Simulated assay, not measured.
Amino acid sequence: MTTGSDRIAWVDYAKGICIIMVVMMHSTLGVQEATGEPSWMGALVAFAKPFRMPDFFLISGLFLTRVIDRPWRRYLDTKVVHFAYFYALWVTIQFAFKAPGFAAEDGWAGVAQAYALSYVQPFGTLWFIYLLPIFFVVSKLTRGISPLIVWPLAAALQIADVQTGSIVIDEFCARFVYFYSGYVFADFFFRFADTVQRHPREATALLVAWAVFEAVVVFSGVSALPVVGLALGFLGALAVITSGVLLWRYGLADFVRYSGEHSIVIYLAFFLPMAATRILLVKVAPGLDTGLIALIVTAMGVVVPLILHRLVRNTALSFLFERPDWAKLKPAPVSPPAKAS
């Protein structure tokens, strides 16, 4: 199940579903806050809440076995410095756009303080790529510890619903079990995807049954209970994997696959077209259905970053989405072999 390169198609489809749901959530909640009205898109956001981020983290851990045994320097370059570069770049870009508003409330000293704090407390929509390097490092540090010890501890942290006020601590406790599961149970998830591919009709029926079950559990309020939330995260991840495999198998919605292939592009840049479209529509079309506004804002949040990415490729602005050489750790020098005396 591959695309034209060595990418696995259903993984890109699953990532595409995840990133679209993330943009949908931010767009819809922003529109509802701006208008003061609920929307039918809000129901979709609530439906996806139990599995939206768990699935994203689980998929992020699927290929960790391929790289976790690399030397630390190479590992840190691709799994820490890579994300640190994009976080620092895009948090600076976000502050450049939001600084005037912050300054009007707290003064420019407050802006500088908030910017410095963003390197301790992840800012806005960027917390996902702030947390990923931490997950990669913790997974490598615990490489020699049995999953029979690490996984129950990670699950216990999720069930505990830790609330300290620190985004890093709270989200680590809530999400690490999914990332770690993608890593240690990768074989299971790939076998599951192969089973879906071989039995598409049965998989489709189960997907429909899951959707009904998910809706009942979410809108009855049961999804917020301990243990239930953990289970829903994994069930939702399997549902997204199933959806990705079925979309690939039937050749549908290639845009979703393309979005997944470039999910980091969307994640980094969606905040600006999302905010601009929301402000514009709320002002010029105040009578427009709130759900329709949220849908349009979501579409712009997904499409515009992809267009921007195509426009800046091979230009002086390519650094927006491609890490330049100066931001990479150079390989450790290799000592020449000792000469025989």
Rank of each mutant, 00 (worst) to 15 (best):
I8H: 05
M25A: 09
G16R: 06
G251K: 07
P50C: 10
L44G: 05
A103N: 11
L306M: 15
M1H: 08
T195D: 15
T28F: 01
W210K: 03
P273F: 13
S223K: 03
L232C: 07
A340P: 03
M41T: 02
M24G: 10
I167A: 05
V11Q: 05
T204I: 04
L295K: 01
I129Q: 13
N314R: 14
A253F: 14
A237K: 03
E202M: 12
S5C: 04
P50N: 07
T2R: 14
E202G: 14
W72V: 04
L132W: 09
Y115P: 05
Y85E: 05
P331V: 07
L62I: 04
E214I: 02
W10Y: 15
W40H: 09
E37F: 14
R52K: 13
V22F: 07
G4L: 12
V91N: 14
G236A: 09
A9F: 03
T92K: 10
C18P: 00
T204R: 12
I296H: 01
A46G: 08
L329A: 07
G236E: 05
F213G: 12
Y115Q: 09
F190K: 15
R201D: 10
L232T: 03
K49D: 08
I293G: 09
P273T: 09
F56L: 15
F86Y: 08
G229S: 13
D194H: 10
R323C: 08
Y250F: 15
R143H: 14
K79C: 06
P54I: 13
A88L: 06
L58K: 05
T35Q: 04
E261I: 04
